[in-house]
Each structure stands twice: as C-alpha cells, then as structure tokens.
Design a protein around this nucleic acid. Structure first.
Lengths: 358, 358
DNA sequence: GTGAAAGCGCTAACAA
DNA sequence: TTGTTAGCGCTTTCAC
C-alpha cells in the first residue's frame, strides 16, 4: 500500500518535473522510439504500423501532453521550421506593420517567425543576424539598416535563403522587393510642380539608408527635370525630432520654400509641429506632403497628401519569394539562376495639404 | 603539386559548404573537442590550458568564422538564451512599442527575443506559445489575448518563468505588470465631470479583454461615484472601424452625450472621423478624450486629451521581474513565494479636446 | 594541461 | 510491422 502510494507520488513528481519525450512514451507503451516517432510524425501508414499500436501511442502522447522538442528536431534535421525577420526598429509603425503581415502569412504556412529588432544600428543588426543564424533558421527576411554588406554576402554564401524588404542593395545578388522609392518621390515633386510649386524643400531620413537615398535621388531628378532653380535637402534621421529641428532651420533661411516634402510620416509630425509654432498655416502658407501614408494623416488639422507604400503587397511577394527559395533549397542544391529584384510603384493619396499656386 | 591543388580545392569547397563546428577546429588544430570547447567558452584559465593552445584555437576559430551552434548548445544545456514575447498584434503601435523596448533591453542582457504575433486570436496565441515553448525558451513575456487561462497554468506548472504585461489575470499566480486601467478610466471621467460633463459616452475595445474590462469598470465606477444618470458603453474592438461605427450609432440616439471617451487611440481615429462627417466640432460641440496618448495626438485638428500609459516603465519592470525569475530558476528549484503583481498609475495628458461647460 | 566518452531528444538508415 | 543504432553539435564528468 505504502509502496504504491510512493510510486504514485514519484510518478507525479517525475511527470511534472521531467520533460516528456518520446522516450517517456516509448517506455510507457513498451514500443520502440522509432515506432513512437513514426506515429507522432504521421507516417504510421507508410510503415504499416498497426492501428492498435498507433492509437496506443497517440493516446499516451495526448495523456502526457507531449510536445515535440523542436530543438532536438532542428539539430537532427538541420531544419527549424522557423524564419527570421530582422528589421531596423519595431517602434516604427511602418516596420511593425510589415512584421505583423509577415508573421501572419508565415504562421499560416506553418513557420514560426522570429522577429529581431536591430535598433537602427548596423552592429545590433549583425548581432541579430548571427544570433538567429546560429539557430538553424530556414530562411530570413531582412530590412537592412546599414550600408555594409559583408554579413549579407556571408549569408548567401552559406546558402541561407534571404530576401530583402523595403531597403536593398542592387549590387548584391540577393532578391528584394520594395517600394520604388525613387519613383514615389519623383511623382510627388511632379505633383507639386503641377500645382505651381517651384520651391520645394525636402527633409530626409537617415542619409545612408538606401530607401532614403532613392527618395532623395527621385527628388533631385524631378527638380532637374522641371528646371527648378531652388532645391534643398536637410535632415538625417527618420524621427519627429529631426523633422522638427530641420524645419526650424529651414524656416530661418532667407529663401523660403512654398512646399515641404517630408520623406517619412515620423519626420512629418516634426515638420507640422515646427510649422505650427512658427505660425504657418497649411496649406495656405505652406504646402506639406509626406512619404508613408499613415492612418492618422486623414485626421490631422490639415489632412496631408502622402505617398502610400504597398506594404501588404510587398510582404506577400517577399514571403512567396522566400518560400520558393526554401523549397528549392530542400529539393536540390542547384541555385535559381536569376535573382528576383522587384520594385513596386507606390501611389499618391491626395488630401488637402497642397495649395494650388499655379 | 596537383595533389596540393586538389586538396586546397577540397578544403575550400568543404569550408564553404559544410558547417564549421568545433570538430572542424579540433581537427585543424589537432586538439580535442573538449579543449576547443573550453577555450571557446572562455574557461581556458579555469582548466589551466596553455596560452599557446588557447591562442591556436582562438585563431583558427576566427579564421574559419566559427559561430557556435545554438541549437546544439540548447539541447545540451537545456537553455536557450532566448526569451519569447507573445503579443496580440504587432500592427497595434502600442504593442509594437512594447516589443521594441523589450527587445532592446533583453538584447543588452544577452538574450535573443523571439516575438510572436497572436493575431488577437486565442488559438493562434496558444499555437505561438506552444511553438516557442518547444524551442526550450528560458522565459516568456506575454500580453494575453483571450480569457482562457489553461495554457498559462500549464506554463507555470512546467516551471517556465512567465510575466504578463498590460493584460493579466489576477486569479492566476503569475506575475504581471500593467497600467492601472481602472484608475486611468476613473480619473478621466473624473476630469470630464470637473469640466461640467454629465453625459459621457464610452466606446470600448474588445469586450473580453482584461484591460478593456478594467477600463469600462473604471468608467462605470466614476459614473456611479458622481451619480451621473447618463451612461453608455458601446463597441467591441480596438479598431478605427469599430470606433467609427459606434460613434455613428451613438449619434443617432435620442439622448446625446457631451463627451466621448474612446478607450484606445485606434478607436479614437474612428470617433473623430464619424464626428467630422456628422459635422460636430471638437471641443465646441463634443468633447473627446482617449486612452493611449499616441504621438500624433498633438497634431490633430484638435489635440486630444489622453491617458498616457507608462509603456517604457512597464516593459522595464517586466524584464527585471523575468530575469529575476530566470536566475532564481537556474540557482535552485525553490519558487519565490510571493507573486509580484504590479499596477502602474497612468497619467492624463491634457490637451484641448475638453470643453468646460460647468 | 589535455582528452575520451556519454548524452541532451530526435530521426532515419539499416536490420529483422 | 517493429526495433537497433548512429549521429546532429555541443558540454561536462571522469580519467590520465
């Protein structure tokens, strides 16, 4: 009696403390590890395991609340069923939206998404990538922060499927899908010119970031195309503070613009604040436009015309690209010859922040 | 000569294709796996490994670009140096801000953060938790979505350190740190009453979510305290659409409120849109307040008074709590007797959206 | 000072 | 139809 009780106690202690593995199930059912593993992996039929055996295993697994140890599986299979998403900052709504979409879509495909925030620093980004890589990740989606590319080349050397989103390096043979930042900025300046603006100032984000560079290039290209004599690009960071500071600076200059183009909505908020403080009314005394088309733009005192990036589309295509690569990797070692590099045209959402002065 | 060349070729092929493990280093340096491992783990001194040997290993590791395989380490150590962050949706800026802070702080402590988006669905949440759990996570920070708690109890049974953020279950013995939602709502109604408002309507978020319930309770408590005869709570979701719909509905009722309290900023945007469409001017014809204090509130046509949640503080405390638990776990099996359950008082940021009608 | 070998939990080639 | 065993890459006990 007492012994039975002690045994029971021991059982409970063990089952609650010790991990439940296929070995536990194997012992309890007096079946081999192989058989248990096969049943649990749904290949019982293939090995013609009897219904009886199969049921026994399944029942016991359920009773114990067995959860397969992915770490062990990864180590054995050299596969993790997880993909890494490395981005500059989750605090930026634009990126977190991407993260959300990627997460949902990949979850539906049975993958776990490991999101890692690089904090807009190249070093942290490399750290995140290395760390994720060390976990036998199946693939990676990256929004790169910096301008160095060695660690990315290392990735592709290692044969890890990688896709860039939003920001990219056209000189690397790594696929990317992004907004056509250049075209977006170009079209926006075009629109402003159509409304009679000839003095358009631009407040940019982080200078070394590809997407920012492309936008600035688009701005300059449009300025040149229209033979505008005025041009101005200030700033160096995708933050409201930067937008604020730079606008203050801009407004102190002798020659003032008639329109300000904020290269992100975070910058825009700072621009608006500065304009408000300096007593400029929008659009009467200053036209303002931006990049990103955040939801709240509709609700501002003056709804701001903005460039809408096809976030959802970008994320979807990137995932498709990545999964294709992963599957190709699994099937054989042959590399897909052509590297998909996709730019998607953004659209301008017109609101009320441009004054027609033509 | 030829043989040398072939060997060199073979070497390059192998080193680029095959993973570099301590075995590679061991073979190249003709040292045992043990020694290599020790040096790489920085315990060379402890085992009095000679400087010469140590240097040789380090040099070779560097030359090969060796990165330790975390999966194997995890399996062996039953430890992952990673913590899971499960939240309802990264698309919600409030949560993604938390994610960003948690990520940064834990990264500084040497942990990798695995963020998983539960998509505001309980099932997906359970899925995410199981999936992360199967990866030998060291601990978890969770913002729970649903109202079922079994999977959480399972977690604490298994001895996994868990901390809830923002939303919580006071009946579970799991630590949490959150805004005092109840008090926040209570104080806001108080403020409105001080400004002479007696008819305050409330547009709520997801009804079953703890934080929402607390806010609604706070609203009702304040309404009761001030003996207001009018009360109204509508809505069921933290979205702009919901806010929009519910406001439209609200404005069709015979008895109209003088103030609307949106229980989140996402809801607020919908409320503002509806009010605008119906021709209400803020604050003259309708006072509006909200919960969350998003950055853009300052820039709206009428800056909205809002309850600011101490996001950063919450995240910091939660991390501290979690790390303490993890360390306690590592040292011994004894459980810390008392469960820390912390509510932090929010502050009201007053802007211009409340009309004084007293 | 250094090394051999066991084992973390799992899968799959090979056996029976 | 089921089982034995090697090994994924790493750490650590025990041995020399």
């Amino acid at each position: 009696m007492l012994r039975d009780f002690l045994l029971l106690c021991a059982y409970f202690i063990l089952s609650s403390l010790k991990n439940i593995t296929i070995k536990t199930i194997s012992e309890n059912t007096k079946l081999s590890l192989t058989t248990v593993s096969r049943v649990l992996n749904g290949v019982a039929e293939k090995y013609r395991i009897s219904q009886f055996t199969s049921d026994k295993v399944l029942k016991e697994a359920k009773r114990l609340g067995y959860v397969p140890n992915q770490v062990a599986r990864n180590l054995r299979l050299q596969k993790s069923f997880a993909i890494g998403l490395v981005l500059p900052s989750l605090a930026n709504p634009y990126f977190s939206t991407i993260a959300s979409i990627v997460n949902q879509a990949l979850h539906a495909e049975g993958f776990l998404v490991l999101v890692s925030d690089g904090n807009e620093e190249e070093e942290a980004e490399i750290d995140a990538i290395t760390n994720i890589l060390a976990r036998n990740i199946d693939g990676m989606i990256i929004i790169p922060s910096g301008k160095n590319t060695e660690h990315f080349e290392m990735l592709s050397k290692k044969g890890i499927p990688v896709v860039f989103i939003d920001r990219y390096f056209s000189n690397l043979s790594i696929p990317y899908v992004a907004t056509d930042h250049y075209q977006g900025a170009f079209k926006m300046v075009d629109l402003l010119v159509k409304h009679g603006h000839k003095k358009i100032a631009c407040i940019q984000g982080s200078q070394h970031v590809m997407s920012n560079l492309e936008r600035v290039n688009g701005y300059y290209a449009a300025v040149k195309k229209h033979n505008l004599t005025y041009d101005y690009v200030g700033g160096n960071g995708f933050t409201a503070e930067e937008g604020y500071m730079e606008t203050k600076l801009l407004l102190q200059r002798k020659e003032k613009p008639t329109a300000i183009f904020a290269l992100s909505d975070t910058i825009l908020l700072g621009v608006l604040k500065a304009l408000d403080e300096e007593g400029y009314r929008i659009p009467d005394e200053m036209s303002v436009v931006s990049f990103d088309n955040s939801v709240y733009l509709d609700y501002l005192s003056c709804p701001v015309t903005s460039i809408s990036q096809p976030v959802s589309e970008i994320a979807q295509i990137a995932i498709r690209l990545l999964l294709t690569k992963i599957k190709a990797n699994a099937v054989s070692e042959k590399k897909t010859a052509d590297v998909e590099q996709i730019l998607i045209a953004p659209t301008i959402i017109q609101r009320k922040s441009i004054k027609d002065i033509s």
